[in-house]
Amino acid sequence: MTLIWAALAAAVGVPIAAAAMSPLLAWRGPVYILAGFAGIVALGLVLVQPLLIGGYLPPLSAYRGRRAHHWIGGALLVAVVVHVVGLWFTSPPDMIDALTFSSPTPFSPFGVIAMWAIFAVALLAALRRRLGLRLRTWRIAHIPLAIVIVIGSVVHCLLIEGTMETVSKAALCAIVLAAALKVMADLWVRRKPRPLAGESSSRQ
């Protein structure tokens, strides 16, 4: 149990520490630095989310894991808002280009798509009870959006050449993808219908 939490802390903490030592920070203002680190924290939270749903973070029970998933989702939303608003204050024209998908930087559209997917999940979660969404319907909507969030966030991060150190950044992105794939595979196996004992014996 301790090893799992230590590995998670290292996967998220090492890239943050490496970015904090980047010489590029000397030419950045405090708002830009805050926005940049909010983006790194957001990627770390994207890693935590599938681990909570998959039950890979003991000693949290399934119920507490789902509750924590909701709260971490809210923290992810806040981190993304801080990231976007901070970048808006530092350079509004660049953010307008990014939000309108007219930015020349290749990483911008992936980040914007992931952002809108996060907003969509947050909105659905807030309105889930009011809309009367059943668990199956919720998963049908949530899982594709989660895939978009993971892929968009990882590609967005990998394409940026900024304060994040290359090796630790790549390692974090790889772990995020691996965690998401692991959870998707486990959920698929759990939901796969098992043949009845009579059916399996009759086929032999």
Rank of each mutant, 00 (worst) to 15 (best):
A146F: 00
V148G: 02
M164R: 08
A179S: 14
S168E: 02
L145C: 12
E165P: 02
T166G: 01
I160F: 14
I160A: 14
I151G: 05
H156P: 07
M164Y: 11
I160K: 15
A180P: 05
C157Q: 06
S168F: 04
I160P: 10
A170T: 14
C173H: 05
L159N: 02
A170Q: 14
A178Q: 03
V150E: 00
A174M: 14
P144V: 06
V150K: 05
L172M: 12
I151T: 15
L145I: 13
V167W: 13
A179T: 12
L177H: 02
E161Y: 07
V167Q: 11
S153V: 03
G162N: 09
I175H: 00
A180K: 08
A178H: 05
V176N: 00
A179N: 09
L159M: 15
A146I: 01
I149P: 01
L145W: 13
V167P: 05
V154E: 05
P144I: 06
L145V: 15
A178D: 02
H156Y: 14
E161A: 11
T166H: 12
V155S: 01
V176W: 00
V148S: 03
L158E: 11
V155M: 08
A180H: 14
A174E: 12
V167A: 15
I160C: 14
V154L: 10
A174K: 09
T163I: 13
A171G: 10
A170R: 13
V176D: 00
L159Y: 03
H156K: 12
I147V: 09
